[in-house]
Amino acid sequence: MNALNAPPKVAVLGATGCVGREVCAALARTGHEVLAVARNHRPHADGHTFVPLDVAAVEPAELAALFTSARVGVVVNATGGWVLTQEAMEYAHVRLVDRVLAATARMARRPRIVQVGTIHEYGFVPEGVPIDERIVPNPTTPYAVTKHAGSEAVLAATRAGDAEAVVLRAVNVCGPHTTEASFLGAVMARLSEATEEEGIELTVADARRDYVDVRDLAEAVVKAAHAPVVGRVVNIGRGEAVNMRELVSLLVAASGFPAHAVRERSAAVESKGGGWTRADITLADQLLDWRPRIGLAQAVRDMWATWEAAPGRRAGPPI
């Protein structure tokens, strides 16, 4: 492939997180050169050009200079997190986006922006209702409110002609390198420390939620980096509302922990996304030519495998 036909260089913000690292890997597989940007270096970023940077703290002119000198054609915002204070959420989800938009607006050749948002931007949806892009967002939690503010800033800049962007609203993710801050990550941590003799009690919400493998989400990001779609919101998920007990059972089976030693206790839903999520992914198919490929059983097995293989982790649950 010559330089004229080479795919654009992509800056991935939040490159060392669960989503960002898979986005970097998916881009590399499709021939993209990656500029990995994160506050702290991680070994898995070694295959890419890495820049240690707090994007929310840097001046827009400095960020614009970085993107220009690296010849960045696409910026993917895969930053953010769940376990944050209100102030930290504003910093990561709103201030950072404002800095990116101010930076790219200064550039002679503005890069395309792919903003990874969340399905929780729509707020709580009645059980049984598929969540499509026509639903008017009504975020109610600090996480959802700040993520939505970032997405809306990107869309507003695009409407004003100051950016070229698309927003992906993703459901909960599972699969490799899922963070311990998530529900499934917390369950993995409990399983890795439990013994068969003592057993384990898990509190599982009476809920049905849509989960997508993080590698499928990464493929959607790659598609969005190239698709002739501007100023649109596209939902990304499996399009299935899975009972949380079923998901936990898959994880227990993947861990090898004896099912008879697991005690489940029901609980009211305490979540940033309510008790029901099922994304309507019709638009993702139509606009991005994207659909999920990885089944939940495989995603959960791979999630446990990467957890088990992490440095300093035990070889498996002490059964």
Rank of each mutant, 00 (worst) to 15 (best):
Q286G: 00
A157L: 05
I200F: 05
R209D: 05
G295W: 07
A11M: 07
R21N: 03
V83L: 14
P318F: 10
V116Y: 03
M188R: 14
L191Q: 02
E22T: 04
A186F: 10
M1F: 11
A224L: 03
V83R: 15
A253T: 15
F124S: 07
L84G: 07
E264Q: 13
R112H: 07
M107K: 04
L251E: 05
P52G: 11
E246C: 06
R245S: 07
P111R: 07
V234P: 03
A15V: 04
S151G: 15
L191H: 02
D54K: 07
D206T: 14
K9Q: 13
G175V: 10
L250C: 13
P139S: 11
T118C: 09
R238G: 12
A25E: 09
H44W: 06
E219Q: 13
A65P: 10
V125P: 03
A56W: 02
V55M: 02
A70Q: 13
A284M: 04
G20T: 04
T158Y: 02
A105F: 07
R42C: 02
R134S: 15
C174F: 13
V51R: 12
A102V: 00
V37Q: 05
A181S: 15
S192M: 14
D302R: 06
N77S: 10
A186Q: 15
S69C: 08
A186E: 14
G20P: 03
P142F: 01
L296D: 03
G199E: 03
V10M: 05
V173F: 06
T203D: 12
V230P: 00
A279Q: 00
C18P: 01
A189S: 13
G161D: 11
L4K: 12
A156D: 15
R21S: 13
V72G: 02
V23P: 05
A160P: 01
T85Y: 04
V269L: 08
K223V: 08
V233T: 14
R99W: 01
L287S: 07
D46Y: 00
T79R: 03
E87A: 10
D98Q: 15
A305K: 06
A6G: 06
V252F: 05
A78G: 01
L155S: 09
A254D: 02
A267V: 08
D285M: 09
P317M: 10
V262W: 01
G81R: 09
A28F: 00
A108Y: 03
L27T: 05
V10D: 05
R208M: 12
V75D: 00
L217I: 10
L101I: 08
M1W: 09
G161R: 00
T178C: 13
R169T: 05
G73E: 11
R106A: 15
T158H: 05
D289W: 08
V145A: 05
A268W: 04
L168A: 04
G73A: 14
A254Y: 01
E240H: 12
L96W: 02
R314V: 09
D132Y: 09
H48R: 13
L84H: 15
E164I: 09
L283T: 07
V300Q: 01
G239C: 04
W304A: 10
